[in-house]
Design a protein around this nucleic acid. Structure first.
Lengths: 139, 139
DNA sequence: TATTGTTATACTCTATAACTATA
DNA sequence: TATAGTTATAGAGTATAACAATA
């Protein structure tokens, strides 16, 4: 399949799955991007606002409100950068970590049920596609 | 890999690729979801507003504005349903079809470039993953 | 009464531009 | 002068509730 055709099919599929996932909100107050940002804080080295925003592929002003919301819920803590007074270092709190694992499981349940209905081969294909998708989201 | 873990990895990857694609807007005025809706009109049998909305996984009121915009640009036409006066049948115009193919190619170029950098095996995995992703977006 | 499309309204997430504090 | 974080503001896309027209 030519790359352009593959890109088009992928994009259409991603839009659809994205919409589907967006509808699948549990009863909790956190949206997909809040959880994703929380996860980014765990992953990013020296998580300043700019770095967290870059990891989530958004501009810093977009991340400000997300972090403020997470902070107001007690899931994120902030402290001054030890050497550069302009920067702020963010970290996930204990309750944030606990909530993250619980909520992830609840949020993934519907998708997991659909995945359960796949054949072993299809699941394998999906599993091998994920790191490729991640690479397509880089740069 | 357990389904829940797979679901979680997939969700994170989808959020990231989705954001990346959203940034890749050409110089034209149509967004991803406008193109997707236009494509849905081509695909759906007897495309009424409710059916197009369902195909795009949004509620009817959300699709109204999308179709109005596409109509104002001359890409979509509407006509009364022959037997049920409550319904409206939408169709893509000639200029809509032409724009769709041109724009799709332009929009896919950046993603296609990244796909070109993949190995043949990775591309194959991606290609086989797409119909699986489509199935995950169904009901 | 029920259904289709629509309008009114509000919420979420995003961006750009401009501000402040520090380097 | 340049950079990190923030605030102000606006735009896109989504949903729910309420409405008109038709079945």
């Amino acid at each position: 399949m030519p790359s352009l055709v593959l890109a088009d099919s992928l994009r259409v599929a991603m839009v659809r799955v994205g919409r589907r996932m967006r509808r699948e909100r549990g009863d909790e107050s956190l949206s997909l991007h809040h959880l994703s940002a929380l996860g980014a804080i765990q992953m990013v080295e020296e998580p300043t606002l700019a770095r967290i925003a870059a990891a989530e592929c958004v501009k810093p002003p977009s991340m400000v409100k997300t972090l403020q919301h997470l902070e107001s819920l007690g899931y994120v803590e902030r402290r001054d950068h030890p050497s550069d007074g302009r920067m702020v270092l963010f970290s996930i709190s204990d309750s944030g970590e606990q909530m993250l694992s619980e909520t992830r499981e609840r949020r993934n349940r519907a998708l997991a049920e659909l995945i359960d209905a796949l054949t072993a081969e299809e699941r394998d294909t999906l599993e091998r596609a994920i790191p490729i998708l991640e690479r397509l989201s880089e740069r």
